[in-house]
């Protein structure tokens, strides 16, 4: 066998190595854990109409800590799991300056209203019929939650359901900050 042919015999299996390394790296990362480029940036303002007919405008919440939660009635079980925690957090912290805002994502009116009744949500919840607010926040699925500080900057994004612990952990330091 000539030297060239021998080199080629090794070159082919060796060429596979970088591909395997790349795949090994790629398959270990969670494709859903994409860091939001919005963290640290001023939040997109929005004004939507809530299910109860009231207006929900983000600019009127300046100086408060805001949790914007994107949800849908078809998002089972994740949205159903986190729903009681969101209401509990709102009840616990609303007097200290927290506002929870629910944004209904790609849903129908009737099941969405049933969902709100089922969990007895008392914080403002609005539809996003054109999807503009969802795209402005870089939402790619539900549930997702954005934690906004008193200065109106996105400080944390949660992909997937929130728990009592996570809400406490994220909300309390933000409430302690000055406006």
């Amino acid at each position: 066998m000539s030297g060239r042919a021998r080199a080629l015999r090794w070159a082919i299996p060796l060429a596979v190595v970088p591909v395997l390394v790349l795949l090994a790296y790629g398959f270990r990362t969670d494709p859903r854990e994409i860091p939001s480029p919005l963290v640290g940036k001023p939040v997109s303002r929005f004004a939507l109409t809530a299910f109860d007919g009231n207006r929900v405008a983000l600019e009127s919440l300046h100086g408060q800590v805001v949790v914007v939660n994107f949800w849908a009635s078809w998002c089972y079980p994740a949205c159903y799991e986190e729903a009681p925690s969101l209401e509990r957090a709102w009840q616990t912290y609303k007097d200290r300056g927290l506002v929870v805002v629910g944004v209904n994502f790609q849903d129908k009116d009737e099941p969405a209203k049933r969902f709100l009744t089922q969990f007895g949500h008392t914080f403002p919840n609005a539809r996003d019929p054109s999807g503009r607010v969802s795209v402005d926040y870089g939402v790619y699925g539900v549930p997702e939650a954005y934690f906004i500080d008193r200065k109106g900057r996105v400080r944390f994004k949660r992909v997937g359901p929130v728990s009592d612990e996570l809400l406490k952990q994220q909300i309390e330091p933000l409430l302690a900050e000055a406006a």
Binding site: I34, P35, S36, L38, G138
Partner: peptide
């Protein structure tokens, strides 16, 4: 505009 919100993903 989309990259600013979603990243280069």
């Amino acid at each position: 505009y989309f990259v600013e919100r979603y990243g280069i993903w």
